[in-house]
Design a protein around this nucleic acid. Structure first.
Length: 361
DNA sequence: AATACGGGGTT
DNA sequence: AACCCAGTATT
């Protein structure tokens, strides 16, 4: 049977030409240092370009080389990463840097199988670093490329790991012999700027004529999306002060927001009044009793799966909780030295603001 | 194969 | 309020 819609694979030349004329100027595109490219790739995981840029500059200023990073401590590293999310990434970068420094003469290994074994190097990041920094001819699949190829081939269904084989085969077919770094970046850039999830700019697309989805007019239906509802949660937060110091505690080393510092408190469960939650959590966490609590502020913070409203109270407790490795009394000014979840950081920021107002008055 | 893991920007 | 993002590790 004759394939009327036989696919006409895109020419890498069209793509590279477009990239040359339309690529954004991004900090990690001005370097060929594999370390810097690695850092950018990890920061960009599930994170938008805009959110990354400042973190990228701050990070390289503090840790300009793999050696400096290998010698860094996790507290400083998390502090630099604060607000970027997915904190395991920072821990893995640190671990991998130590391995690279110790076992690979401080150079990122060029063997994909070796690199893939290091913490934080998954299928995407391994091939991204090797292709972009070392020009190795390796295909890669990120959200942009997955969407773009699904449209090129008119693959229906949700964006999913199940299409990886098809996508990889296609990429290997269209990949040029040279310019792999530009080619891979060009695919991602085209996905980000033209082949967008919503309202793709097909009329400006350099590979429009190769796109099966465009031919069928179904580009906006690919990939299929699923809805998710955001749960609402209330939490009680205790500001416990002794003289000018606040009491903070460290979260467990595993799980959500691992190893970050926060004010004591927790989720509202069966309690009707949030003050009851406050008392229960403080008793459970610190083994002390709340004798007085005054509502201070409400802070709303959105996670991917839920939205939490933090009900913040200033509290008196008996007895005062004690310090140890995971519990500290800290003055307002020094709280910035402790990596905190963004919700807690918002509270600190308001406290500072109020403090400044009072000083002026 | 499904789920945990953040947060900020955009729609 | 929902959607989106240069994914990885664990279960």
């Amino acid at each position: 049977m004759k394939k009327i819609l036989a696919h006409n694979p895109l020419k890498s030349r069209d793509l590279l030409l477009w990239y040359q004329n339309n690529a954004r100027e991004l900090p990690w595109r001005k370097t060929s240092d594999p370390y810097k490219i690695w850092i950018s790739e990890v920061m960009l995981q599930q994170t938008t370009v805009n959110a990354v840029i400042n973190y990228y500059h701050r990070w390289l200023k503090r840790f300009p080389t793999i050696q400096s990073l290998a010698r860094g401590n996790i507290h400083d590293i998390l502090n630099l990463w604060q607000g970027l999310g997915y904190y395991q990434r920072a821990r893995n970068i640190h671990k991998a840097a130590q391995i690279i420094y110790k076992d690979h003469h401080g150079e990122i290994p060029k063997n994909p199988k070796v690199l893939r074994k290091l913490p934080g190097f998954g299928p995407y990041t391994t091939n991204a670093v090797l292709s972009i920094a070392y020009e190795l001819r390796l295909p890669l699949i990120d959200t942009n490329i997955r969407r773009l190829v699904m449209r090129q081939l008119a693959l229906r269904g949700v964006a999913n790991i199940k299409q990886n084989k098809t996508i990889t085969t296609y990429l290997e077919k269209i990949m040029p012999k040279k310019n792999i770094s530009f080619f891979n970046q060009a695919l991602m850039e085209l996905g980000a700027l033209i082949c967008k999830p919503k309202n793709p700019l097909c009329l400006l697309c350099p590979i429009q004529k190769n796109c099966k989805a465009f031919q069928k007019g179904i580009q906006e239906l690919i990939p299929k999306t699923s809805k998710n509802k955001i749960k609402k949660i209330n939490a009680a937060i205790a500001l416990i002060q002794k003289e000018r110091k606040f009491f903070i505690q460290k979260r467990p080393e595993k799980g959500l927001l691992a190893g970050l510092w926060e004010f004591p408190g927790g989720k509202q469960e069966k309690e009707k009044k949030i003050e009851e939650t406050l008392k229960r959590e403080i008793k459970e966490e610190l083994k002390v009793s709340v004798t007085k609590s005054d509502f201070l502020m409400k802070v709303k913070h959105y996670y991917t799966q839920f939205a939490v409203t933090l009900h913040v109270f200033t509290c008196d407790v008996v007895p005062f909780p004690l310090e140890d490795d995971t519990h500290k009394w800290v003055i307002l000014k020094n709280l910035k030295n402790f990596p905190m979840p963004s919700g807690s950081a918002k509270i600190v920021s308001k406290l500072k603001h109020d403090d400044n107002q009072q000083r002026r008055a």
